[in-house]
Design a protein around this nucleic acid. Structure first.
Lengths: 143, 143
DNA sequence: TATATTTAAGATTAAGGAGTCTTAATTCTT
DNA sequence: AAGAATTAAGACTCCTTAATCTTAAATATA
C-alpha cells in the first residue's frame, strides 16, 4: 500500500523529529546511517519532503535538514501525500473505471469505509504522537 | 494496494461468475473483450487462477474457463492470495524490520486493526455477493 | 484424420520505480 | 579567498511488474 520510498521517508521523519525536532539541523548522511539505508535513495526522497514544505534544508558544512513545522503539526498523511500521493484514497478498489458514488461497484461503500478509516488514522497521527510513543517503547531497538 | 493484475483478475472472475458461473465454459478471449483489456495479459493471470484451483480450464474449440467452485465458495481473498499473495496483511506499515507484536512500532496496533478489517471484508465477501449486488445495480453499465 | 480453436508455457520486450552516481550550487570555516 | 562539506538536480542503471509474442499441447468438429 505504501511504497518503499514512502515507508522509508516516514521512518526518516521519525528519526529527524526524534534527534532534532524543528530545532536542530541533522545531516541526511546521519539519517541514512541510522536507518541503515542508501544515502542516495534517501536524499532523493528528502528533496520531495523539502518541496512539500515538511522540511527545511541547509547547504554547506553544518548543513542538513530539520522539520519545517512542529512535530504535532506534521501528520503522517502529509508525508504519504508528498511521496506517494493520495491516489490510493481516491480510486475504485477493483479498478472499475465507471465506479463512483452514483454507480458504485459491489464493494464501493464497504471499501470506502476502510479507506476512510485509514485516512483518518493517518490524518490524526502526528509525528509527535509517533515519536513520543516510540521513545517510550521501542526507539532504542530501532535506531 | 492491489496490483493491476489482481484488480483485473477480480473483474474477470466477476464476469465469469456472471456469464457462466460454475456451469458454462467461457473463452478467455470473450472475457478480455468484455473487460476491454489485453487478452495476453489476462490469459497469464487466468493461468494463476487455474493453478490456485479457482478456475477449471478446457482446451480446444468450445474451450475456455469456468469456476472451479460455486460462486459463494470463492472469496475475494482467494483471488488476492492467488495473484498478489498476502504479504500486505503481514508486514509493518512503516517498514520497521524489528516491528512485531512484542516490539510494536507506534502505529502497529492501530494498523493491525485496519488491516484485519480489510482482511475480514475480503474473506467474507464472496463472488456470489459481488455478482448479485452488481447484477441488481450496475453490471449493465460495466460489461 | 485433418483442421481449426483454445489454453499452457516460456521467451521477449516495455515501462516504472528503486537505487546509484556525477556535477553544480551553496555556505561554513580557516 | 580557498577548501571542505553538504544539499540540489538530473542522468543513468537495475530490477520488478506489466504487457506481448511465439510455439506447443490438447480437443471438438467436420
Amino acid at each position: 500500500m505504501l511504497s518503499a520510498a514512502c515507508k522509508e521517508s516516514i521512518r526518516a521523519m521519525i528519526y529527524i523529529a526524534h534527534a532534532g525536532g524543528d530545532k536542530k539541523i541533522i545531516p541526511v548522511k546521519e539519517v541514512a546511517e541510522k536507518l541503515e539505508t542508501s544515502f542516495y535513495f534517501l536524499a532523493k526522497n528528502v528533496q520531495k519532503l523539502v518541496k512539500a514544505g515538511l522540511l527545511f534544508s541547509y547547504k554547506g558544512p553544518k548543513g542538513g535538514v530539520k522539520l519545517a513545522k512542529s512535530p504535532e503539526e506534521i501528520k503522517l498523511i502529509d508525508i504519504v501525500e508528498a511521496i506517494d500521493g493520495l491516489e490510493f484514497f481516491e480510486t475504485c478498489l477493483l479498478g472499475f473505471k465507471e465506479c463512483s458514488d452514483e454507480h458504485p461497484c459491489a464493494i464501493h461503500h464497504k471499501w470506502a469505509d476502510k479507506r476512510k478509516a485509514i485516512y483518518k488514522l493517518f490524518s490524526e497521527t502526528s509525528l509527535k504522537d509517533v515519536v513520543e510513543d516510540m521513545e517510550k517503547n521501542c526507539l532504542q531497538i530501532i535506531f
